[in-house]
Simulated assay, not measured.
Amino acid sequence: MRPVCRHRCAVLLPAVLAATAATALPCAALAEDVVIYRCTDAQGRLSLRDTPCASGERQQVQTMLRPVDPPPRPVAPAPPPSPPAAPAVVQTVVLQPPRPMYECVTPDGETYTSDTAEGNPRWVPLWTLGYPAVAPYRRSGGEFRADIGVHDGRVDGRISIDHAVRGRRHPTAAGYSAGTWVRDACHPLPQQEVCDRLRDRRYALDRRYNSALQSERTEIVREQRGIDARLANDCRNH
């Protein structure tokens, strides 16, 4: 009898559990679960509801998990503030004004260039400038004096020749061979012409370098460096 009972109990137990589930809320259902009741009346009409079926209706219960909102997404931390920008480095570039160049003319009509407005000096007798070679004497106390005005283009001057009186005779005129320094006339060149002449001089030095002696090449290189520096500073836009 025991084996039979054991077999019958194994067959009847699932049916009992199913009937219990059809008439009552499962014990495992939690408060946060959703219970849906499937009700079928005597006419075979089907309805779904969230409360138990009426008496006489066939009931089926379905338990579902209540939808739960996902946890809020973690807020990404704010990025750290950017480090302050490094202060801009101010570079001061000092440019010298272009150096002028002058073209000077000698008395013979030859021309040359100079970095100053003062041409080459030369000594000339005063008579070449229109001054008289003989000046009259005039009495000054017990002496006679001959005064000669001199002008060298910049400064006015005077030359005095004194003669002491001896006896009754006195001089009437004084001859002299004085002279003065004069400079060649110069005029400034336009900046474009200055740059062109510097480049011409640089090119002439390049050609001369190949045939120059070793001692001359040192001077050529030194002059070329000076021309290159002047071209870089004075001839950027020319």
Rank of each mutant, 00 (worst) to 15 (best):
L129V: 00
V34K: 15
D156L: 11
R154C: 12
P125I: 00
S82Q: 10
Q96H: 05
A204F: 08
T180C: 06
S140D: 14
Y131W: 04
Q96G: 00
G109Q: 09
F144A: 12
P136A: 02
R197I: 05
G141H: 00
A86T: 15
R8G: 09
H7V: 14
P72A: 11
R38G: 06
A18S: 07
P136W: 00
L126I: 08
G157M: 12
V150G: 10
P52T: 07
R166H: 06
T218Q: 13
A29Q: 02
D69S: 14
T113V: 12
Y209H: 04
L213S: 15
W181L: 13
S47N: 08
E193H: 01
C104G: 01
D41W: 02
H151L: 10
N120R: 13
T172W: 05
R145W: 07
H170G: 07
R45G: 03
T180L: 14
L126T: 10
T63C: 08
H187I: 05
P67A: 14
T20M: 13
A185M: 07
E32Y: 07
N210P: 00
R73W: 08
P67L: 13
P121K: 04
H187S: 14
R222P: 00
G109V: 06
V68T: 13
E110H: 12
P67T: 07
E110M: 09
G119N: 04
Q214P: 02
